[in-house]
Amino acid sequence: MPIQYYIYFCLALFSIGIIGVLTRKNAIIVFMCVELMLNAVNLLLVAFSKMHHGAALAGNPATTVGIDGQLFVFFIMVVAAAEVSVGLAIIVMMYRNTHSVDINFLNRLKN
């Protein structure tokens, strides 16, 4: 498959994520949208990594060029997992305090 398809797909996925973050008030949905954005990036990283690696293999079968992209995906996944655990914990705490998961209630810091 040509790389463009991946790019368009990731772009769409990322945009959905951004629009979701911007428009939704429910903290859990915002959270899911953030995950969506992260995964769009992950997908793109894997796609580019595969593309570069494939091109390099043609010249040198033992090459490792391009695999660092996939490495980063793992990092991001780990970080995302950590983030989710912390984030969900915050949301739970928030729910306990406000009985709501609406992020617009969380503007008390502005004063």
């Binding site: 951004i18 973050v21 911007l22 428009t23 008030k25 915002v30 992020i103 617009n104 969380l106 503007n107 008390r108 810091l109 502005k110």
Partner: peptide, 16 residues
């Protein structure tokens, strides 16, 4: 100061 409304989404919008 009014820019800092406390609305997370507005921050994100500005960021984007």
């Amino acid at each position: 100061r009014l820019v800092q409304s406390g609305q997370v989404s507005s921050y994100v919008l500005i960021m984007v």
